[in-house]
Computed example of a mutant assay.
Amino acid sequence: MDAAPQPYADQAALWNGLAGRVWVEMQDLLDQMFRPLEDRLAETVPAGSDFAVLDVGCGTGAITLAVARRLAPGGCSVGVDISEPMIAAAKARAAREGAPADFICADAQTHPFEPAGFDMILSRFGVMFFDDFTAAFANLRRAAKDDAALRCVVWRSPEENPFMTTAERAAAPFLPAMPARRPDAPGQFALADIGRIRRVLAEGGWTDIDIRPIDVPCAFPESDLVRYFTRLGPLGLILPQADERTRARVVKTVRAAFDPYVRDGQVRFVAACWMVAARAR
C-alpha cells in the first residue's frame, strides 16, 4: 500500500518525511504481509552463488537481507533507496544480523552505479515511483553486467487489488480532501499496464522481456488491522489532519469495510501482481 501519488519532485520529501518514518515503524507488519513475495523473489537468486545483486527501492532491507543469506561469501547484496530513514533502519537490521549486505541512500534513476557491476537486479514494489521510467531502467541497464537478469514484482491494477484501496474508498465520504490516485503518476499502480512495462523496459535497453501475472495470498493478524489502515497509504497521510470526531467515524467505517477480509483472527488478501523478467543482452 503506497503513499498518496505525488509529483516526483515530492517523492524524496515524502519518503524522507512522514511516509519513510511510518514505513520504518511498520516494518514488522509490512515484512509479515509481504513475506510470500519476498520468498518468491529472493529464490530467483541461485543459492550459494557469488553474484552481485542490487535490490532497487529496498526500503528497510527485507529483500536485500534475504538475498545476502543465499549468497556465497564471494557474493554481495546491495540495497538502494531514496529514503534516509529506511536506509538507516536497513543498515541497523544488517548489523544486528551480521549480514553481508550494503545499502546506498540514493535515487536509483540517476545514481552513478559502477558500470556493469551487477549479475542480478531485483525489486519488490520499488520501481513504480520513478519520474522517468525509461531513464531509470536505462540507468539500471548500465549497472548490469551483460546477460544480467532483472526480476521485479509490481502491482497490477487497483480493480484487481481491491484490498489495497478499501481504506481510502470507505473513508472518502468523510475526507473529501484526500487526494485521488493518478494512474500514470509515480505510485503504487504506475506500472499496472503491461504495455507500459514492456515499452519502458525496451526503451531502457532490456531484452527477453517476460511479464507474468502472479496472485499471491498474504496475511497479517487482525489485531494489526487498525494500525495498518490508519498509518499507511493515502488515508494514513491525511487522517492525522482530521478532527477527533471525524477520525473516530473514519476508523469505525473503514474497519467495517475490511470485514470481508477477516477470518480466524487473520486479515487475508491476494496480492495481484506482475512478475517482470528481462535480460541485459
Rank of each mutant, 00 (worst) to 15 (best):
A4V: 00
P5H: 01
P5K: 01
Q6W: 04
A9C: 07
W15N: 00
N16K: 02
A19D: 10
G20L: 04
V22D: 02
E25P: 03
D28M: 05
L30I: 08
M33L: 11
M33W: 03
E38N: 15
D39F: 09
A47T: 08
S49M: 00
A52W: 00
V56F: 01
V56D: 02
G57L: 05
G59Y: 01
T60K: 00
G61W: 02
G61V: 09
L65R: 14
A66D: 02
V67Y: 00
A68S: 08
P73E: 09
G74N: 14
G74I: 06
D81I: 07
K91G: 11
R93N: 13
A95N: 04
A99I: 05
P100Q: 03
P100L: 04
D102A: 15
A106S: 13
Q109C: 05
T110K: 11
F113W: 10
P115Q: 10
A116S: 10
I121N: 05
I121P: 04
L122S: 04
S123D: 03
A136C: 08
A138E: 09
N139V: 02
L140M: 14
R142F: 06
A143P: 11
K145T: 05
D146G: 09
D146S: 10
D147V: 06
R151F: 05
V153D: 13
W155E: 03
S157H: 12
S157G: 15
S157I: 11
E159T: 15
E159D: 15
M164R: 06
T165M: 03
T166M: 02
A167I: 01
A170Y: 04
L175Y: 00
L175I: 15
P176L: 02
A177V: 04
P179G: 01
A185Q: 09
G187P: 06
Q188V: 07
L191C: 03
A192L: 14
D193F: 13
V200Y: 04
G204F: 09
G205A: 01
G205N: 00
P213Y: 12
A219G: 08
D224F: 01
D224I: 05
V226E: 13
R227K: 11
T230Q: 00
T230F: 03
G233I: 00
G233N: 02
P234D: 01
L235W: 00
L235H: 03
G236C: 06
I238S: 10
I238N: 01
P240R: 10
A242C: 14
R245N: 13
R249V: 12
K252G: 14
T253M: 03
R255I: 01
A257G: 09
D259H: 12
P260G: 09
D264I: 03
R268K: 15
V270R: 12
A271H: 12
C273F: 11
M275K: 11
A277C: 13
A277P: 07
A278M: 12
